[in-house]
């Protein structure tokens, strides 16, 4: 094998060795990105999606503004501990 071939083979293998190291670092980067995306990404999604309708519904399923409820209705709603999306 002549000198040029030996050196070209050497540089090809150097690229492969470097590629292996880059692959390993990319695996780490992908893993960390996934972890951050699954944590902070979820919070971002939660706060950027449209807010759910928090108004309670009357017997006919029509939303009732909270300010139109009297004190006892508001109090019973608070004490029931229902989430706003659970309706009346």
């Amino acid at each position: 094998m002549n000198l040029a071939q030996r050196h070209s083979r050497s540089s090809i293998m150097a690229t492969i060795f470097f590629g292996s190291t880059v692959f390993a670092v990319l695996c780490l980067a992908t893993l960390l990105f996934t972890v951050f995306n699954q944590t902070a990404g979820y919070v971002l999604l939660e706060y950027t999606t449209a807010k759910a309708d928090v108004l309670p519904l009357d017997a006919n399923g029509v939303p009732v503004p909270l300010e139109s409820l009297d004190a006892s209705a508001l109090n019973s709603r608070r004490q029931s501990g229902r989430s706003p999306t659970q309706g009346n």
């Binding site: 150097a14 492969i16 060795f17 470097f18 590629g19 292996s20 190291t21 692959f23 390993a24």
Partner: peptide, 15 residues
């Protein structure tokens, strides 16, 4: 094995 050894060779001999 191959990736670990290749990256070890790179870190030890080339980097």
């Amino acid at each position: 094995l191959p990736v670990g050894l290749a990256s070890a060779v790179y870190l030890s001999e080339y980097a």
